[in-house]
Design a protein around this nucleic acid. Sequence first.
DNA 1: GGAATTTACTTGACGCGTCAACTATTGAGC
DNA 2: GCTCAATAGTTGACGCGTCAAGTAAATTCC
Lengths: 166, 166
Amino acid sequence: MPAMPILKELKQTRPFRSPAQEATVALLRTADMANRLVDAVIERHGITGQQYNVLRILRGAGETGLPTLDIAERMIEQTPGITRLIDRLETKKLVARERCATDRRQVFCRITPAGLALLGRLDEPVRAASDDALRHLSKKDVAQLIELLDRTREGINATISKEIKS
Amino acid sequence: MPAMPILKELKQTRPFRSPAQEATVALLRTADMANRLVDAVIERHGITGQQYNVLRILRGAGETGLPTLDIAERMIEQTPGITRLIDRLETKKLVARERCATDRRQVFCRITPAGLALLGRLDEPVRAASDDALRHLSKKDVAQLIELLDRTREGINATISKEIKS
DNA sequence: GGAATTTACTTGACGCGTCAACTATTGAGC
DNA sequence: GCTCAATAGTTGACGCGTCAAGTAAATTCC
């Protein structure tokens, strides 16, 4: 039961040029839908999906917090956007920043108690949204999906390193 | 060989709250990587990934073209951004717009010969990028991945319709 | 056939990703 | 110690998604 094949879904006449291309498009569209679903849950609580990610990272980092760029590394995102993202979290009093004394270039970011409380309220609904999104898949399917995606990322990583060399 | 488990990849101490959540995160990260790979190829040719998508849609639509909002429907995206997206394509002379005579509310967009030529140059490298991304997967794996993703989208769609009702 | 809706866009404002500079420190080599 | 390079972060500019509000041209309904 392939549900709704991508081809129809896109109302596209032109067929895919390879199965891999069909899979890639399916991957992108599926991820976008999942993102919307999860973001919708998060945004009801007054922060964006990206802001939520930052808060989660900072919660994981504990008391000491993290330098700005270390946060960026743990996100999907690259670098410069992180500054403004954290600016907004600081405005909302969910994150506090402080220049490091021993290395004055670094700025440590810590999650505030208000930030922790917000995360606490979000953990359950966010998990529920993920479970909902995948509820058509059996336990085994989910494991299989994770495995396929892991291997896909590995392949992409390899491709990228190859390109950097050339 | 699960390559690099998501958990390590994120340097995150806190474990996932459910397999579904791990799968969701894997999905989002994998899609992001795939997107970067493909976009990198496209952007070498002077347009963005979204602009490429619009051009593909318009190529599929043929001579008559498509009204603005019909393009938006076929994209991942919702509505209003499409206007400005096409503005930029028009500036680049890759798309032409013309108000419909019979229904003057509509604006028909058509791909120009220059746009078609650009797409022609991109088809091959884009397909190659997809193939590269998934080269660690066997034919069977790719089919399996497509199937799992199709079913996932189906589940998300159902979840969303359910929410709209409530 | 004229008012009230609906449709097809368009525009403004804001969040976010990304590249290219630019500043402030710190560290390394001499 | 002093120059030079690397590191940590910030800022400006632009593309894009998204919501809310606005405009203009059909359509619908008395």
